[in-house]
């Protein structure tokens, strides 16, 4: 896992952040904090270190604690390093009814990690999350921005192999190709 981060936005990310701050009335640019944290998470390897959050505080002209308070409240922000792909399996009622537990078990044994852990090659982190508004496609999981629905063990295997083979750099909810001003 890459623990040392390059703490600065790319020019595109910075321009996008500025643009987003401009979407709120005069003096209310703090509103943009969540979208900018998404961008930061994408820029900084899938997670937010204190330095990363301080950087966000700096470009938004906020107190660092204001950023910490927000980042720690919302479940999408990782405050610890994660693998290149974060697998988020929905565990809530409707998905549970359709076998979400079995999917989690399957991934755990396939990757040889427990929920909350990262594979030793730094490729996958496994998380469970609450209902992602895809209950009709239960059981389901999200990887970066993509929803994978109607999962079976075989389908999970194919999906994971795909990521294993094609992921060179960390992917995140706000995909890199959408960081454009």
């Amino acid at each position: 896992m890459e623990n040392k981060q390059h703490i600065e936005f790319s020019a595109d990310a910075l321009a996008l952040a500025k643009k987003l701050m401009g979407r709120y009335p005069e003096g209310k640019h703090k509103s943009a904090i969540i979208p900018i944290l998404h961008i930061a998470q994408s820029e900084f390897g899938g997670w937010l270190s204190p330095q990363g959050m301080d950087y966000v505080a700096k470009i938004m002209d906020l107190q660092p604690i204001e950023v910490y308070e927000v980042a720690s409240f919302y479940s999408m922000f990782n405050l610890q390093p994660v693998g290149k792909c974060v697998i988020e399996v929905c565990r809530t009622g409707p998905c549970w009814l359709m076998g979400a537990e079995d999917i989690v078990n399957h991934i755990e044994s396939k990757l040889n990690i427990k929920v909350g852990e990262t594979t030793s090659d730094g490729m996958f982190t496994l998380k469970t999350v609450e209902c992602l508004a895809a209950c009709g496609g239960a059981p389901m999981m999200q990887v970066a921005e993509k929803y994978h629905e109607d999962l079976t063990f075989a389908k999970v295997d194919t999906i994971l192999n795909d990521y294993q083979n094609n992921t060179k750099t960390p992917i995140s909810h706000w995909s890199k190709d959408k960081i454009k001003p």
């Binding site: 107190q63 660092p64 604690i65 910490y68 308070e69 720690s72 409240f73």
Partner: peptide, 20 residues
């Protein structure tokens, strides 16, 4: 003037904490 502590986390594990 400069707030340096606040509430981190949410729900049952919320805590008062400070900018370290």
């Amino acid at each position: 003037d400069e707030r340096v502590h606040g509430v981190l986390n949410r729900g049952e594990v919320s805590e008062i904490s400070t900018y370290i």
